[in-house]
Design a protein around this nucleic acid. Structure first.
Lengths: 141, 141
DNA sequence: CTTGACCTTTGGGCAGCCTAACGGTTGTAA
DNA sequence: TTACAACCGTTAGGCTGCCCAAAGGTCAAG
């Protein structure tokens, strides 16, 4: 699997794949004839995993750490710390994404007249239990 | 609602809220006595909305555009274009986040012995139907 | 009236990713 | 076999989004 194929399947740009590779999060082997980077099937899962954590604000070095734990099998017992702190955010985002996605579906199905307005969709995102862990260290320094 | 309160409730830093405000995505009014920025209840939904779209890679100017459509009520009929293209990504991410969140739950419940390893979790992210729209313009320039 | 926890603005810094430029490789097909 | 389009690589620089520190105002509690 070459760079562009992995990128397209994974839903990111080829440049992003190259970037993750430069930083050591993906480890392709090289075609000795032309220097092309070749990714195995496993790389797709890694790429999706990276993309998910990045969108939660986890840094590339932290993700690299988690991936190396996964590679070593160290992580069945010691839970990767940067992952655990994301639990609440993961559930919330999953729910929010579904709400938005379903709203888009409604729009696409000629149900416009009976469905919610965009304004109502946005407001509804503020009405859930959006409370995170108390000591989340994410309000002011 | 002052800046830190909104930030904490919304799960972002106060600096991020100030940034969105500087860029015009949030419009607080000012306490005339001290210059503090005061956010109404509606801002929370907007903030969550911004955070969701940002994590999908939508740029702040594009989000600002969508928000202004929502404010004008323009969007019941003309579907905000940057939103529509995200539909597939939204569903996929919602599913992926749930998978990861549940895996973390398993880890936290002393079920470690019988649950999947981190490596298996990551690999499973590559086995779903991760195919996006064909002309997604997100593989190479 | 001082301490601590807020708030403001300004300015600089950094990570993550994009873009352009240049040259090599590959496959298809004139 | 030449020519073209569509890949690939590396390098260098640029942009966006957000963080952080500094310097100073506000405010409630003790």
């Amino acid at each position: 699997m070459r760079v562009s194929e992995l990128a397209q399947t994974g839903g990111v740009t080829a440049e992003t794949v190259r970037h993750y590779t430069r930083e050591g999060l993906l480890q392709p082997h090289r075609d000795p004839r032309n220097g092309y980077q070749l990714y195995d099937a496993e790389s797709l899962g890694r790429l999706r995993f990276i993309d998910c954590l990045r969108s939660l604000g986890v840094s590339l070095p932290e993700i690299k750490q988690i991936l190396s734990w996964a590679d070593q099998g160290t992580a069945e017992f010691i839970e990767p710390v940067p992952l655990a702190t994301q639990r609440g955010r993961l559930y919330l985002r999953a729910q929010e994404f579904q709400v938005i996605a379903r709203w888009i579906d409604n729009m696409n199905q000629d149900k416009m007249t009976e469905s919610f307005s965009l304004k109502e969709l946005i407001e509804s995102l503020g009405t859930g239990k959006l409370v995170f862990e108390a000591n989340d260290s994410r309000s002011d320094h």
